[in-house]
């Protein structure tokens, strides 16, 4: 079943982090509304390659909305014009024949461009390394049912843990803030009894690393929440701020010494 949509694409192209990028305009026909957005881009690349051109680079992997690899700003919106999905779950039925679609990478200094629409998000990994874990070595765990976790608390933790680490929140924010990501990660662990032991150290270390990576601050515009494919809400940011405040007052000196 081939389709009949004709589209004009303006795709960001950039050789590497150091070179200057620009938009390239491409016309494409025969697009089916049942295609995913990435399948539309596959079709574009197939056409490009048949013409002897290299095709556009974009990140993708699972193509079912869970790995968090895909990362396109489409017509100004991270993951495009639909709610609660990643780019790979966006379908062409959301567009009309004759549309012009602008496609860009996540833009943030903490996510340098690797090529075209592919960026480097290792800064997120470094934030996790700073404290986004529970310190339990393999083999030292007590029986799984030893600690009862109230269902509402467990569900709240899960709401935060649903984050796929895609970075749409950063791309959506005018300050390139990573507050929603970090808040989700902090909240997931801090809501659980298992995570409480290190709760204060965790929030301090992760926020500290977030700042070091060059992510901006929060202006309370909630663009991150609107862009999040997993429905992570900004009240987790409030929780993180509360935890951070409490931790700064009590623990900062112990953990970090005088400078904080």
């Amino acid at each position: 079943m081939s389709g009949n949509m004709n589209l004009t694409l303006k795709i960001w192209t950039q050789k590497n982090a150091k070179s200057k990028g620009q938009f390239e305009t491409i016309k494409i026909g025969g697009i089916s509304p049942d295609m995913s957005f990435l399948e539309m881009l596959d079709t574009v690349n197939e056409q490009q390659m048949k013409e002897g051109k290299e095709g556009f680079a974009f990140d993708h992997d699972c193509r079912e909305g869970i790995c968090g690899m895909c990362s396109l700003v489409i017509n100004g919106l991270p993951h495009g014009p639909d709610n609660l999905i990643t780019t790979c779950q966006l379908h062409m039925r959301k567009f009309k024949d004759g549309d012009t679609i602008v496609i860009e990478p996540w833009r943030a200094s903490a996510f340098p461009v690797i090529r075209d629409c592919v960026v480097d998000r290792y800064s997120f990994d470094r934030i996790i390394q700073a404290g986004g874990f529970i310190s339990v070595n393999t083999g030292s765990a007590p029986d799984a049912s030893a600690i009862a976790v109230p269902k509402d608390q467990s569900e709240r933790a899960f709401d935060a843990a649903a984050c796929v680490g895609c970075g749409a929140c950063v791309a959506a924010c005018k300050n390139s803030s990573a507050m929603l990501f970090v808040a989700a990660k902090v909240s997931h662990l801090n809501y659980l009894p298992q995570g409480k032991v290190e709760a204060k150290r965790r929030v301090l270390a992760m926020v500290d690393q977030m700042d070091k990576e060059g992510f901006g601050n929060c202006s309370n515009l909630y663009e991150c929440e609107a862009a999040c494919p997993k429905g992570i809400t900004v009240d987790f940011i409030a929780k993180m701020n509360r935890e951070y405040l409490g931790a700064t007052a009590i623990y900062a000196e112990k953990v970090y010494g005088e400078e904080m």
Binding site: A144, A148, K151, E155, A161, H188, L192
Partner: peptide, 23 residues
Amino acid sequence: SNLIIDQCVAQGVPFGRDYGGLL
């Protein structure tokens, strides 16, 4: 298999629970 569940819960994996708070 049982050790895995223990390990994952200790790491903070939010497995489904019932209202008594158990898995």
